[in-house]
């Protein structure tokens, strides 16, 4: 018979993991409902999601296309891949944080694993990203950009992005429950980071001193690992992949430990 003993619990970081496995169907159903709500009732459906990066790409290509023509071949592809990776990370983390800070009421009413919302947010982001990559393929064919076997590396890149986003989302969601203005602070931060990350410009336009500082921006390697196989048509360097993967894993472990250690307080705080 099922037993619950509040005094006999494995460490939170482990307990939460097994609870999530028990409640895995809930996560799938939540992702399904997010996707259905988003697409069912709009005529353009899936295209809404693509419209945003696409319009951004068109506007930015027109504005900066000539400027970077010499330094970046097929600027539109460079831009679009950068935007997809960037949007995935930022939108997923923002979505997770918002659903925790404003929609976490369920956690106060019934028991569900505390990380359910956050995992569902990342799952939702992943589905969107995979659909976007499909659309990207169409656009790339249309632009006559070369497509190579390097594309097969993309699943690895996407997994790295997802692991990093999950870790960051766990960290930010914990913070947002304790301090509601985390949502606003993050909003400002990512706006600044967008310009500090080579998404719409090549890193080569920066002065050498600044270029070294880019090494401190974790988003750079994450975007590169996604962009290189599509834009540069070769596999990313082994060291780049190792760096990005380690960064993602460290972020996930740190976020997970922080979140699960504070998770018991969530129902008090939300």
């Amino acid at each position: 018979m099922l037993e619950y003993d509040s005094a006999k619990r494995p460490p939170p970081a482990i307990d939460e993991f097994f609870q999530l496995i028990r409640y895995r169907d809930l996560i799938f159903l939540m992702v399904e409902s997010i996707l259905k709500n988003r697409y069912k009732r709009s005529v353009l459906g899936v295209f809404w999601m693509l419209l945003n990066p696409l319009l951004q790409t068109i506007v930015l290509s027109v504005a900066f296309g000539t400027m970077f023509k010499s330094s970046i071949p097929s600027y539109a592809v460079y831009l679009l891949t950068g935007l997809l990776a960037w949007n995935f990370i930022t939108q997923t983390t923002q979505y997770a944080m918002n659903s925790m800070a404003y929609g976490g009421g369920l956690l106060k009413r019934v028991y569900i694993p505390r990380a359910t919302y956050i995992i569902a947010a990342v799952g939702n982001g992943l589905v969107n990203l995979v659909v976007s990559v499909g659309a990207l393929l169409v656009i790339i064919i249309f632009l006559h950009h070369e497509i190579t076997w390097a594309w097969l590396f993309l699943p690895v890149s996407i997994v790295i992005l997802a692991i990093f986003s999950l870790g960051l989302a766990l960290f930010l969601s914990t913070a947002s429950v304790f301090f509601t203005d985390t949502v606003d602070i993050y909003q400002v931060l990512i706006q600044a980071l967008f310009f500090l990350t080579p998404i719409m410009y090549p890193p080569s336009i920066l002065p050498p001193e600044l270029n070294q500082l880019l090494a401190l921006n974790p988003f750079v390697i994450l975007i590169e690992v996604f962009r290189i196989p599509i834009h540069a048509n070769h596999l990313p360097d082994f060291s780049l992949v190792v760096n990005a993967a380690s960064l993602a894993l460290i972020t996930l472990v740190a976020g997970w430990v922080l979140f699960t250690s504070k998770a018991d307080q969530l129902a008090y705080r939300l």
Binding site: Y4, D5, R109
Partner: peptide, 11 residues
């Protein structure tokens, strides 16, 4: 939904 601050709950 919440865990006790002190003590034990057994079900």
């Amino acid at each position: 939904v919440i865990r006790p601050t002190y003590g034990r709950v057994f079900l």
